[in-house]
């Protein structure tokens, strides 16, 4: 009888641990070899967490949110705004870690040199009025939400009435390409993506350069579903957080790309939520 019980226990426990833990990351810039890069992250987490871990690639910011909502992923690397969207849809889900850079994130405004806009002190130069302008993705924090917020704050007007044309490039790499080609006079881009592009010589700074750096705000974070401890065992959430904080292999961190991960919680993102509501992107 005892033997039978033990067998049953083993069966139950293997069945429980058979549930794969899945995660995704919003596609904000370079997506080449995405699977390969994130499979390494999955392998790392698998070792740390002792469950099967799988990476699920997504195409758009909203697809990442709906995958999280549908429980197709239990953990996600979100932007500031997408994280707020996701946590509003999935009760009890929480932010557990952010990149070291994310506590003080920035947007860079970049301009094509043809547009004749020069950096001026602490504000966005006045002569951007009447130019053409592109955001990044529609729900990007650094490519849409925060630049729109700062534009409205400085000029007291929505971007639509300030610029002669407003577009959405879809992601940060595309914003740089479109401003470099002159399709738009200026654009708003994630500062990390810009700096990496410049460092790797993927952008011609004679044709496009930074004209303004915004003040800082909180951005990307890891968000985990609220029902995780019940499904993967008590303390699993803390284990995931610890595994993320302990991640120190530069090759893994390069995928995000961040220097290091530090703790974060939902309250860190209250400013983003307030701004999102104010701009009508959240309701």
């Amino acid at each position: 009888m005892r033997w039978l019980l033990a067998c049953l226990l083993i069966l139950v426990s293997t069945a429980a641990s058979a549930e794969t833990f899945r995660f995704t990351a919003i596609p904000d810039a370079d997506q080449s070899r995405l699977q390969e890069r994130f499979d390494k992250v999955a392998a790392y987490l698998e070792k740390q967490l002792d469950v099967d871990v799988e990476y699920v690639p997504v195409k758009s910011y909203s697809a990442a949110v709906s995958a999280f909502r549908n429980d197709q992923v239990q953990l996600a690397w979100f932007g500031g705004l997408t994280g707020v969207q996701a946590r509003r849809l999935v009760p009890d889900s929480r932010a557990i870690a952010q990149g070291k850079e994310d506590a003080e994130f920035r947007t860079y405004f970049i301009a094509n040199t043809h547009a004749g806009i020069k950096p001026q002190g602490d504000d966005l130069p006045k002569n951007v009025q009447g130019k053409t302008f592109t955001f990044g993705a529609k729900t990007s924090t650094s490519g849409r939400l925060m630049p729109e917020y700062f534009i409205r704050k400085q000029f007291g007007a929505p971007p639509k009435s300030l610029f002669s044309r407003v577009g959405f490039s879809g992601d940060h790499s595309r914003t740089i390409a479109l401003v470099e080609s002159g399709a738009y006079d200026l654009g708003a881009v994630n500062f990390k993506v810009w700096e990496d592009a410049v460092a790797e010589d993927r952008v011609d700074t004679d044709k496009v350069d930074v004209i303004w750096k915004t003040p800082t705000y909180p951005d990307y974070q890891w968000t985990i579903r609220g029902d995780i401890d019940a499904r993967y065992g008590d303390g699993f959430t803390d284990k995931v957080r610890q595994a993320l904080l302990d991640m120190d292999d530069p090759e893994l961190l390069e995928s995000f790309p961040r220097q290091d991960f530090i703790p974060a919680d939902n309250d860190d993102y209250q400013p983003i939520e307030d701004i999102g509501e104010k701009l009508g992107l959240l309701r």
């Binding site: 997506q31 080449s32 690639p57 997504v58 790499s173």
Partner: peptide, 19 residues
């Protein structure tokens, strides 16, 4: 694939968008 289902279009759109 353009909205994220893993067909040829998934990779085609990413590759095009990122140059």
């Amino acid at each position: 694939g353009f909205v994220g289902l893993p067909t040829l279009g998934f990779h085609l759109e990413s590759a095009f968008r990122e140059g």
